[in-house]
Deep mutational scan, measured.
Amino acid sequence: HNLTITQGKLFFHYNPKLCLSEIHKMEEVSGTKGRQERNDIALKTNGDQASCENELLKFSYIRTSFDKILLRWEPYWPPDFRDLLGFMLFYKEAPYQNVTEFDGQDACGSNSWTVVDIDPPLRSNDPKSQNHPGWLMRGLKPWTQYAIFVKTLVTFSDERRTYGAKSDIIYVQTDATNPSVPLDPISVSNSSSQIILKWKPPSDPNGNITHYLVFWERQAEDSELFELDYCLKGLKLPSRTWSPPFESEDSQKHNQSEYEDSAGECCSCPKTDSQILKELEESSFRKTFEDYLHNVVFVPRKTSSGTGAEDPRPSRKRRSLGDVGNVTVAVPTVAAFPNTSSTSVPTSPEEHRPFEKVVNKESLVISGLRHFTGYRIELQACNQDTPEERCSVAAYVSARTMPEAKADDIVGPVTHEIFENNVVHLMWQEPKEPNGLIVLYEVSYRRYGDEELHLCVSRKHFALERGCRLRGLSPGNYSVRIRATSLAGNGSWTEPTYFYVTDYLDVPSNIA
């Protein structure tokens, strides 16, 4: 807008934040220059609390790290170098490059900038070799853009010569660093050979998330399962459950009422301010606690030095998902009996873990797994792929695949051998790939016309006998059925096997 004052003059007093240069501009645009008398524009009460600059400061050096910015700028000295009290560095987070010096300023003089007072450097006698002032900004957020400017702080001049310097606002972004852990990993099994893994992005990506790394490792069953005799009275049979499938998407929606109208769909109840505040506090606490764990609990591995020492970490090797089922080394339970199943799973520490690289999504279907087997899954978020990966501390989750139908069934015939004193040795093959492992066998036998009897055969007993022995049988026709019990439950009964026990007292003698 054009402003013209045809008559009258300007009068400025007691404006401590208004620089004289701005008042002189007002004289020019209003056409009143030359009308004012000496005392109409006070030299001592206008701009006496402001830094009124008329020179431009330029930054000469900028260096960044993930949490620091090192700045240096060209030296500046007023005509009387004693008038320079120091520099004021202003900075704040700036997602967009549209910041002005006066953003967030209120009537009390406060604003949204963080201000650092910096002492002037030592003055050199040689004007050509003056030290460049600077400042190291610490405690910054990774991968965050900051708006920065600097200006001088000078003393009051009796001659009211307006001098000083100020830089333009520059924008500097800190470097990326390792992201925080992925949030809320959930693993479920939808079949006997697959596990579905879902997660949420890290709360602090500290860069642009480029991919996720998912490692999985087959877990050995508890050692007590191999040692305890679950045929003993009072000892509860062990059981394991597989990871249940995901709930429906509708039930997972946030901010939804727990109660549904019987007449149909209901609208979600909005969260109160107290609920939102509580969630923010919980989120802040979780982030602080995660940072504490990362800094205190997890110790970084030592990389190899120039002395030739090897990095103890196993090298990563990509495998196809079809090879995942046989990740671990199978060892027989008892070496003397080769027909026992290889369900003991000690994992070799030198073995390469299978892994998958996930790009542009937060889910993965891990296939080719062994049925009813526990897996430990390790999830890392990465925001750099080359020249070397920059990934987060791992988040861990466990899951067990679903049982395989008929995996616990005894394959092959049940054979028998009759000894003296009416002892019958029953023999059968253990299931080759049971659900988890076989903890015991149930032997059901009966003599024709009598009630059915049951015998429990422990895992250890089966390994020693290759089956079991029935003792003290009365003469007669017998039928026997056997079924295995694994961590997933009972298998199917075998087809009945028949044998006849004679009275050993009636056996004919070869003595003449």
Rank of each mutant, 00 (worst) to 15 (best):
S203G: 10
S203V: 04
G207A: 05
N208V: 07
I209V: 12
T210Y: 05
S223V: 10
E224N: 15
L225A: 10
F226T: 08
D229R: 02
C231H: 03
L232I: 14
L235S: 07
K236W: 08
R240M: 13
T241S: 05
W242C: 01
P244M: 14
P244G: 13
P245C: 10
P245Y: 14
F246K: 11
F246E: 12
E247G: 07
S251K: 14
N255R: 12
C266N: 13
S268D: 08
C269Y: 07
K271D: 12
T272K: 02
Q275K: 08
L277M: 15
E290N: 04
V296H: 09
V297D: 08
V297M: 07
F298H: 14
F298K: 01
V299Y: 12
R301F: 02
R301I: 15
K302N: 09
K302W: 15
G308S: 08
A309V: 12
D311F: 15
P312M: 06
S315G: 10
K317R: 09
R318V: 14
G322N: 04
V324F: 05
V324G: 14
A330K: 15
A330S: 15
V331P: 15
A336W: 04
P338A: 10
T343F: 09
T343E: 06
T347M: 14
E350W: 02
E350R: 15
E351A: 10
E351K: 14
K357H: 03
V358R: 09
V359F: 05
K361W: 06
I366P: 00
R370K: 14
G374Q: 12
R376M: 02
I377P: 00
L379I: 10
T386Y: 03
T386I: 15
E389H: 10
S392A: 02
A394W: 13
V397I: 01
R400E: 09
M402P: 09
P403F: 07
G412Q: 11
E417F: 06
F419C: 13
E420Q: 12
E420W: 04
H425D: 04
L426R: 01
P431G: 03
N435H: 01
N435M: 00
V443D: 01
Y445T: 02
L453M: 10
K460A: 10
H461R: 10
E465F: 10
C468H: 09
R469A: 04
R469P: 03
L470T: 02
S474F: 07
P475S: 08
N477A: 07
N477P: 09
Y478T: 01
I482R: 00
A484L: 02
A484H: 00
S486P: 00
L487H: 00
N490W: 14
G491W: 00
S492G: 14
S492H: 08
W493F: 11
T494A: 04
T494F: 01
F499Y: 02
T502F: 04
D503G: 07
Y504P: 05
Y504C: 03
L505Y: 14
L505P: 12
A512V: 05
